[in-house]
Design a protein around this nucleic acid. Structure first.
Lengths: 402, 402
DNA sequence: CTATTTCGTCAGGGCGCTTTACAAATTAGT
DNA sequence: ACTAATTTGTAAAGCGCCCTGACGAAATAG
């Protein structure tokens, strides 16, 4: 099984794999699925005119998709126009489901999302995972997955894959956690610790958060920067609807962009990295707040109460973010910047100085900065949806099962 | 006619255009062309095994390409192995040619490149263009194009398109020069000023330079940053063999990445932009050299003679470049950074401090920095080759002509 | 000189979309 | 109410494209 299409840029026209009729069929099946998925209930004729195939061809494709349980016939449309009414087609609510999971510092979460994008089952378990070895955590997660899968199956769904979001760097094999400082994990093969009955994908939570923003965000463009901070400050770069991962998978390390070249030393070896000004530790120190549990909520609370030290710390962090983002925006010319993760909760106090800095350093209209609407749910939803997208992108890959 | 494939990221699986057998044929024709182009003389059987089609299918594709004049049969291979020797196929040296043109500050250049990548005709005209209105410049350029086209036609080639590299920002329509400070051009529609008998593409010279590096550079990876400085400092971002252009086409503005947030004011409104430290004016001022003609050669000469002020200026510029590139590398995780344009000539004095700065600020192995081998020819070659790539990417688009 | 191997081509077949035709279901007009 | 017009969905025939299998051609190995 190849990696989902959205995870990597496709090869160019000189690639080695030839074009055959089966491939054509597969792509057209995908096109029908995407069209129906995006356009609400649609008749065969409407689908045909949208993707440019004939009604006969679409009929054949739709037949196959219905037989596979990926599309449903809702019955005749209520016609306002002249002519025979079409038969409404919709993405099935009983077919495959994407199972998303999240390993957080102090919680585990799992959910199942159907092809329509609806969350159909979920389970959460709170409890500090910092420093716990991977095995028991994975075992607990597997239990949650089983519960969610059972609940989904009770509703006529079957799991098409499992995607796990972790707070750390993940190797390009999409199984191995290279380094997760918040969990104290290193070179952990999650694939070996989780049940092998489902196709597994592991990725950074920031990446899944950005994908969630792309797929679920209201009005989110196809080219944007998704900035999130949990411990480090990570930016996911989305170009033309695809995640830019970098050669080694390390792209988006916004936290180590130099902000003041002669600033304080950083663990990375550099000086004055963004993390020294807008990282969690730096902000807590500047705000005079002791590290502890739920640090983000604490900061937000104090800021809301009017604590001037906290507000100043956040204002300064916003300025530093603005400087770093100026560089990123100049380099990438995105449609917008979206603040997610912990930054979303602190946005009211970060945004003014951030926007001001960005505007001050930009000739012409500044790049718009917005706040994610998904809140802390982003990575979990992004993980589940990544499985769903995989099915929509290649329906034939699951057509065999029922 | 749609834009060449290399100019933009392709749409995802949900795109509107359907998959039909003609499209399949077109893509397979492209695959054959790419395979032969990349692999030197190749038999039909060799092509078939490389792209995964059957010999019969490749035979049919090759027939069509030979009839169109895009491939040539060189005759029987000299066999070292057992079995009937194959008939060697090569990309035709008589078919379509890409015409590239460059509008420089003090020269105009045009060349024609055949499908094999050989330069088959060229013409250069020296003379200062700074401040000259677009019309006479375009007229002169058109004259050179006519000469080059005539020379190419004398060798059995026919022009498949014209690509023009300009030192300035080009709109996404690939015809309009939005702003070219070195020429004093603004909102100039080059398409209206050049003869309309050839498909025209206009782009920034830095972009063409980066593409030349990608296509012609020896060992250049598919993910890299190409940095070039003419007036401003521009970086072209190449991701998986494709140029990242940005929403408005402004991606790669490395010159305005903040290096020292409280540094000197910049025309862009910001402070301490890279251009204030490594831009041409800044370096000349720091080196105590008066602006004039051939400033780059002057700097290189003085540095070679051991002029300490010049050397220090270049060293400092390298440091500033290193700081800005640290940010870019952290964000994009490329395979490498390539210095092109004017920077290539100054590389001996820029590189040590640049590499040192980059290494100092990077945990683990630093991103390798190399110097372009193409020198000042990059943009011109890139332009011509972009037309050639367009033909290789879709041979069917020119198959009708001869 | 024969057996073997590989190349290029041809005929037959399968697959997938298009064209063409038609029945079904609705609206517009008289 | 009835006919004409319009649109939908399906079926049959056709065409393009690649695959399979077979064959002659041209080289090497023994």
């Amino acid at each position: 099984m190849t990696a989902p299409l959205h995870q990597t840029h496709p090869a160019g026209p000189g690639r080695a794999t030839p074009d055959t009729q089966q491939g054509m069929r597969r792509r057209n099946l995908a096109r029908v699925m995407h069209t129906v998925s995006a356009g609400g209930p649609l008749s065969r004729a409407a689908v045909a005119s949208r993707i440019g195939l004939t009604r006969a061809a679409v009929s054949s494709l739709v037949d196959e998709l219905i037989r596979s349980g990926l599309l449903e016939e809702l019955g005749p449309e209520r016609p306002g126009r002249v002519g025979r009414p079409g038969s409404a087609l919709a993405v099935s609510g009983r077919g495959p489901a994407g199972v998303g999971a999240e390993v957080g510092v102090d919680h585990l979460a799992v959910c199942a999302v159907d092809l329509r994008g609806q969350v159909r089952a979920r389970a959460v378990r709170y409890g500090a995972n910092r420093g716990r070895p991977p095995e028991p955590v994975a075992g607990e997660l597997a239990g949650l997955v089983r519960r969610v899968v059972a609940e989904a199956e009770g509703q006529g769904l079957w799991p098409a894959g499992l995607a796990v979001a972790v707070p750390g760097l993940v190797a390009r094999d999409a199984r191995t956690v290279v380094r997760a400082p918040n969990l104290d994990w290193q070179d952990t093969d999650l694939g070996a610790l989780l049940p092998g009955d489902l196709p597994l994908t592991v990725d950074n939570e920031a990446n899944f958060g950005a994908l969630a923003e792309l797929w679920l965000g209201d009005g989110t463009p196809r080219d944007f920067l998704h900035v999130s901070a949990e411990i480090g400050i990570g930016a996911a770069v989305v170009v033309d609807g695809r995640l830019l991962r970098g050669t080694r998978g390390f792209a988006g390390e916004l936290g180590h962009v130099p902000v003041r070249p002669d600033g304080p030393e950083c663990a990375c070896g550099g000086r004055g990295c963004l993390e020294q000004y807008a990282g969690e530790d730096a902000v807590l120190r500047a705000a005079g707040v002791a590290p502890g549990e739920d640090r983000v909520g604490l900061l937000a609370g104090r800021a809301a109460q009017g604590d001037e030290a906290v507000r100043r710390a956040l204002r300064d962090a916003g300025t530093a973010l603005g400087i770093a983002l100026t560089g990123a925006v100049n380099l990438l010319d995105p449609d917008g910047v979206v603040l997610g993760g912990a930054l979303a909760g602190l946005a009211p106090w970060l945004l003014p100085s951030l926007r001001a800095e960005l505007a001050r350093r930009t000739a012409g209209p500044a790049c718009p900065v917005s706040v994610s609407e998904l809140g802390s749910e982003g990575p979990l939803l992004g993980a589940a949806h990544s499985v769903v997208r995989g099915v929509l992108d290649d329906p034939a890959s699951v057509a065999g099962r029922s």
